[in-house]
Design a protein around this nucleic acid. Structure first.
Length: 293
DNA sequence: ACCCAGGCGGGCG
DNA sequence: CGCCCGCATGGG
């Protein structure tokens, strides 16, 4: 089938750039080319190549790659293309700070990632920085991922290793790949998610139950469980509170006073309701970018 | 040199 | 219960 039709998806209020740069699981191992506005990432047994043309208000996603046609639905799910951003913005645009964040990163989507990939990435994320999370994640993929070949039989990438694949690694292996004290968590999570907890069977829509189940994993506490619920299961009720969110919210909404996690959670629920996961992503990205210098 | 990073588990009061 | 501490590693 030469000159195969390139699948296209019309998209509006969508920014591949802001989405990629907002430190979500996919972005730790995908490659992004800002000039061509293209993202390349391994998925299943092939590589998906996604180009965004037009502008963020109204554009087109072009899907290229060996399995481009069957990947169309997957791209739509993964980038949450059916989210009604007008409606979501209306719900979370509650004040001047949110308005500025939405304006600055308009089109940024939450992404929906594989639950196991998300679990591993956020176990690595604890007490760590984004650059090293990315490094460690890539090291683990390089060491334990399976080769992905193009139609000519050339190895082009490595797929994300499943939990069973990581069971072959020792704690020392993960330490050598840069995981540090998290190595023991990676090892035990690989075992637990292979033998005891089927991540594919957890109830994505039941926030409390989902969160409690995820916290059975050693090394997964409340914050990491919220990240997995949000970005691995698409549960928008999850509101992960990390150091950036905590600081930003204390400053913006609590006159600089130190607040407990429960109080901040309660505030977020009351203010942004079932869309608080989206509010979190805009607050987080804004705080992180404006915190750099 | 010093401080910080998408926190967590464990121990203590 | 809540509080507090140690924790690997590398970048600013």
């Amino acid at each position: 089938m030469e000159h195969a039709h390139i699948p296209e998806i019309p998209v509006s209020i969508f920014s591949l750039k802001h989405t990629f740069e907002s430190a979500q699981p996919l972005t730790f191992y995908a490659d992004y080319n800002e000039v061509s506005n293209t993202i390349v990432y391994p998925y299943d047994s092939s590589v998906i190549n996604l180009m965004h043309s037009g502008d963020d208000e109204k554009g087109t996603l072009h899907i290229m790659g060996r399995h481009a046609a069957p990947a169309t639905g997957e791209v739509s799910r993964r980038f949450r293309l059916s989210d009604d951003m007008q409606k979501i913005y209306k719900k979370i645009n509650t004040d001047q700070s949110m308005a500025k964040a939405i304006s600055a990163y308009r089109g940024m989507r939450l992404t929906l990632n594989d639950p196991w990939e998300t679990t591993l990435v956020f176990i690595i994320s604890q007490f760590n920085n984004v650059k090293r999370i990315r490094l460690i994640t890539r090291n683990i993929i390089q060491r334990f991922g399976k080769e992905i070949y193009d139609s000519g039989g050339k190895a082009v990438a490595k797929g994300f290793p499943q939990s069973a694949d990581l069971m072959k690694g020792t704690e020392k292996d993960f330490r050598d790949l840069g995981a540090g004290f998290r190595a023991k968590y990676i090892k035990s999570a690989a075992e637990y998610c292979t033998n005891n907890l089927n991540l594919g069977k957890l109830p994505a829509g039941k926030y409390e139950k989902l969160r409690d189940s995820l916290m059975e994993i050693d090394g997964v506490g409340g914050k990491v469980a919220d990240c997995i619920a949000l970005m691995g299961y698409g549960n928008l009720e999850a509101f992960p509170i990390d150091v950036h969110i905590k600081r930003a919210m204390e400053r913006i909404y609590f006159k600089g006073r130190k607040m407990g996690m429960a109080q901040i959670q309660e505030f977020a629920e009351g203010r942004w309701g079932v869309y608080r996961g989206y509010a979190q992503q805009y607050l987080f990205h804004n705080a992180r970018v404006s915190g750099r210098k």
